[in-house]
Computed example of a mutant assay.
Amino acid sequence: MSKVKYYYDSETLSYRKIESKRGRKIGFIFLFFAASALFAVLFVTIIFNTALETPKEKVLKREVTQLKFQYDVLNKKIKQAQDVLKNIEERDNNIYRLYFEANPIPEEQRKAGFGGVNRYEDLYKLENGELLVATTKEIEKLQKRLIVQSKSLDEIAKLAEDREEFLASIPAIQPVNNEDLTRMASGYGWRNDPFTKARKMHWGMDFTAPRGTPVYASGDGVVVRADNSSSGFGKHIRIDHGYGYVSLYAHLSKYNVRKGRKVKRGDLIGFVGSTGRSQAPHLHYEIRKNGEKINPINFYYGNLSAVEFEELLKNAAKQNQSLD
């Protein structure tokens, strides 16, 4: 049974019964069925589109899946490259640069980005822009680290080249072979002068050997003097090894090199004699560093065994008389 509805009539000051109109009811019923039909069509369309994909949609979906896979692979490769580079950076700072006494490269310098607020503006406009920007930033950081490391290795290579040149240049061998020596007559330090018998500083080492015994360059360098115009040394040779080092070979009988010639360690440069202020045939050998005369005993690591060096130390320490 339908409900009876009333309304208040202000003119008669009474409630009056609302008479329903047949047309209005039919309108409501039609509107209900129209809305239901529209909802049904939308529902079916959604279900249909979800269940059935066009060939183009399937291709696009596969491409998206493939791109996501490639992105994951790319990220893994970036991570692997970062790990390998990190290992190289650690060895560079803690081994190579430490060995060659170069300052380590700070971490913030290695990992600094390229900067620029609008650098990625165009990427942000693309679909998945944030993802593209994040990946691009990682690649650029990796690129920057590779550039820094490459420059560091160039520097290390130069340092190694310089160190190799340095090691080849400094006087590092005994200038007379052990088998040619009669004895090591006098070492560096205070000794008795053979002529005045007074105590006098002896600035080198005297190697006694027969006249004509070969004398060898103790390191790579350039002959800066080969003459007898220096007081007391007689015929003598001086070799500039660079890095502040100069070696001197005195009392020679003759030369095998002339001024300006480049020599290598072990090259024959002259022969033992007794020219100048000398009491007997021997080689007077000195080393100077930045103009200061230093003890040659510390520069024979290149051709003496531990036993031979120990014997040389013992003889050099003897408070005997020098030969010049």
Results as ranks from 00 to 15, higher is better:
residue 134 A to G: 08
residue 150 S to L: 11
residue 175 P to N: 12
residue 201 M to P: 11
residue 203 W to V: 07
residue 163 R to C: 04
residue 182 T to Y: 10
residue 136 T to G: 03
residue 165 E to V: 08
residue 131 L to F: 06
residue 133 V to T: 03
residue 139 I to L: 15
residue 141 K to L: 15
residue 184 M to W: 11
residue 145 R to E: 13
residue 134 A to M: 06
residue 200 K to R: 13
residue 213 T to N: 08
residue 160 A to L: 06
residue 164 E to F: 06
residue 208 T to K: 09
residue 212 G to H: 02
residue 199 R to L: 15
residue 143 Q to L: 05
residue 184 M to F: 09
residue 211 R to M: 15
residue 145 R to T: 09
residue 204 G to W: 00
residue 177 N to K: 12
residue 198 A to E: 12
residue 196 T to K: 11
residue 199 R to H: 14
residue 138 E to V: 07
residue 212 G to V: 01
residue 199 R to W: 13
residue 153 L to V: 00
residue 140 E to A: 05
residue 214 P to Y: 06
residue 203 W to I: 03
residue 212 G to N: 13
residue 201 M to A: 14
residue 140 E to P: 10
residue 207 F to A: 11
residue 131 L to I: 06
residue 207 F to T: 04
residue 214 P to S: 08
residue 165 E to R: 11
residue 201 M to L: 15
residue 155 E to V: 03
residue 179 E to Y: 09
residue 183 R to T: 09
residue 130 E to V: 08
residue 148 V to L: 02
residue 172 A to Q: 10
residue 209 A to T: 01
residue 176 V to T: 02
residue 212 G to C: 04
residue 169 S to D: 05
residue 145 R to I: 03
residue 142 L to E: 03
residue 204 G to K: 06
residue 169 S to P: 00
residue 130 E to D: 14
residue 166 F to C: 03
residue 156 I to N: 06
residue 164 E to I: 05
residue 191 R to Y: 01
residue 208 T to C: 05
residue 186 S to H: 09
residue 178 N to R: 04
residue 185 A to C: 10
residue 183 R to V: 08
residue 193 D to M: 14
residue 140 E to I: 12
residue 154 D to V: 00
residue 172 A to R: 13
residue 161 E to H: 10
residue 204 G to F: 00
residue 192 N to V: 09
residue 203 W to F: 11
residue 195 F to P: 01
residue 150 S to Y: 12
residue 173 I to F: 02
residue 150 S to K: 14
residue 192 N to A: 12
residue 214 P to N: 10
residue 195 F to I: 01
residue 150 S to Q: 11
residue 163 R to F: 13
residue 168 A to F: 08
residue 172 A to Y: 05
residue 215 V to N: 05
residue 147 I to F: 08
residue 183 R to E: 11
residue 199 R to C: 05
residue 140 E to L: 15
residue 185 A to Y: 01
residue 146 L to K: 12
residue 191 R to M: 01
